[in-house]
């Protein structure tokens, strides 16, 4: 999420500098159309809200914010507007204003709005209020009807931001995510592997590599990845065994796969690692 801040700032800066270059196709036309409608009905708060949404999609957050405020000043009391004001503040990196807006939204509309709670958690995270962020995100995890793997991963990011030694807690979150989304959900299994490696649980990390090897129809990439890890862990003989199995798996592939660029590259990588290990 720290990268998220940089990414957001970059996008804002970049879009301000080069809005003309980074177009969004028919959004520009729709914004122009909405501007024309506003010129005909300048007191219609609905139009400002709609144009604000378009500006937001166009990554023109300042203009979106201005339109939302104008819509509010003209009498728009819809809760969707309140949410959008918080959201656009968050996207623009004004986290204090975003927190103020989302808090007001949740006070008025009740704290059971899962989407708003998620935004609150994301804002709190950016403000470094990790415990509060965790608390809000926990609600999202417990309440959201259709969680995505991305939600579980974001929750884990907050856990580790709050305390980077909490790999075990993050792992528990991944395990509960696997129960919710399916035991073989790839991005969660990949993250589990990362946490096991990062927390120095070498044998468990190797078991996790074995999980991928056994679970997948094509194993050559996983054998190689396991060999890389074994090499890093200074276990060259096991690494070589894994590389041999990778090579043997490639040898048994259908010709069309053997000649794909990804496999040709993998063969070079195997050769290179083998040379290093000898």
């Amino acid at each position: 999420m720290q990268n998220g801040i940089k990414k957001t700032l970059f996008i804002v800066t970049f879009s301000l500098l080069s809005a003309q270059v980074f177009g969004h196709g028919d959004l520009t036309k729709r914004i122009n159309e909405k501007t024309r409608e506003i010129s005909e009905s300048p007191k219609d708060f609905r139009l400002y809200y709609e144009r604000g949404l378009l500006y937001q999609q166009h990554i023109e957050y300042t203009k979106a914010h201005e339109d939302y405020l104008k819509s509010k000043s003209l009498g728009n009391t819809d809760k969707a507007l309140q949410y959008r004001i918080a959201e656009v503040n968050y996207l623009a990196g004004d986290y204090n204003a975003a927190l103020k807006s989302i808090t007001a939204y949740l006070e008025v509309n009740g704290s059971s709005d899962v989407k708003a709670k998620k935004l609150e958690a994301q804002i709190l995270f950016e403000l470094g209020a990790y415990k509060k962020s965790l608390y809000a995100y926990r609600y999202v995890i417990d309440t959201m009807k259709d969680l995505r793997p991305e939600d579980i991963l974001e929750y884990c990011d907050i856990i580790l931001a709050e305390n980077d030694k909490n790999q075990e807690v993050a792992l528990e979150a991944i395990e509960s995510g696997l129960k919710l989304l399916g035991p073989n959900t790839l991005s969660l299994q990949l993250r589990k592997l990362d946490y096991l490696k990062n927390s120095g649980q070498i044998e468990k990390a190797l078991e996790q590599y074995n999980y991928f090897i056994l679970e997948y129809d094509r194993r050559e990439f996983w054998y190689y990845k396991k060999a890389m890890y074994l090499a890093e862990m200074k276990r060259p003989k096991e690494a070589i065994i894994s590389l041999k199995l990778a090579t043997a798996t490639i040898d048994r592939l259908d010709m069309k796969f053997k000649n794909m660029n990804a496999i040709l590259k993998l063969k070079e990588q195997i050769k290179s690692l083998e040379a290093q290990l000898k």
Binding site: L181, G182, N184
Partner: peptide, 20 residues
């Protein structure tokens, strides 16, 4: 997402994405 029901757990082959 309400109208479509897509495979999240590789029910129709492929790799489980965990999302529709």
């Amino acid at each position: 997402y309400d109208i479509f029901t897509f495979p999240k757990e590789a029910e129709a082959g492929g790799t489980p994405s965990g999302t529709e």
